[in-house]
Amino acid sequence: MIDRNTRKRSIHSAGNLSRSLFLSILGILTFLPFVFALIISFKDIFQYTHHPFKPTFPLMWSNYVIAYKLVIKYIFNSILVSGVSAVFVILLGVFSGYVFARYDFPFKNTLFFFFLALMMIPTVLSLVTRFILVMNLGLRDNYLGMILPYISGGQIMVIFVSRTFFENIPNSLFESAKIDGASDVHMLFNIAIPLSLAIIWTLVIMNIISTWNNILWPLVIINKVELMPISIGLLHFKGQTQSNVGAMMAGYLIASIPLLIVFVVASKQFVRGLTSGAVKL
């Protein structure tokens, strides 16, 4: 009982206050680009030219109208492609990461290094050859033409990260489960994954970001406007002589709303994943 009281008092302790202060300063600085984007999104081309960062009036809500019409055409595609990719990236990546973590087989480490080195090459290297492959598979102008390469590339990072995490789970947990008669798959789903939920949600965030903002691949693989993701749709603003930067910002902000929802959810799950398996004193 004494512990509970001291803990209650310590919420507003000096240590916490100084931490909060420091974090607030960093937080404001980190959030600044967001704020600027918001300010710019209400400017027309003239206001932006004359006052790039100061809020200007009248507010150009028309930017949002233009942006909304544009975004709504493409947002479904982005959600579908990034969503499906993320699901399978996690699935395949976690399965493989588990295998790498808990089992040994010939060429295991060589294979691993190859994967790792592969990740470090700029993907543009194989842009044309991959394009030819996807074209020959008949997947141009097809959602799968985007999804499958995304899964293939994205899973490597998940394999790598989940392997590290699974390796750090005390073997005693697995041993005792084996004694209880649990199968390999059981152990994956009931031990490894629940304990790594936090990391898995972080990986979800990372993967969705990389596929959401990818421009080059959809640009070359998709010709039909109905299939284009939002990253391409928004480029429309950039390609002109004096681009309507305000509308572009509005577009990016609207397009990030689904992302925001996912990340807030993921962030909450992240905490749940950590606190559910941990010890409570």
């Binding site: 493989s96 295998v99 040994d104 899973q155």
Partner: peptide, 27 residues
């Protein structure tokens, strides 16, 4: 760590490997 994987377990690697070989390694 040093455990021989069963066929079933190895098969969990297959989809990953297949995709990577096709869309990453081949190009």
């Amino acid at each position: 760590i040093v455990r021989r994987p069963s066929i079933f377990v190895l098969s969990m690697l297959v989809p990953s490997l297949f995709l990577v070989l096709l869309f990453n390694y081949y190009p």
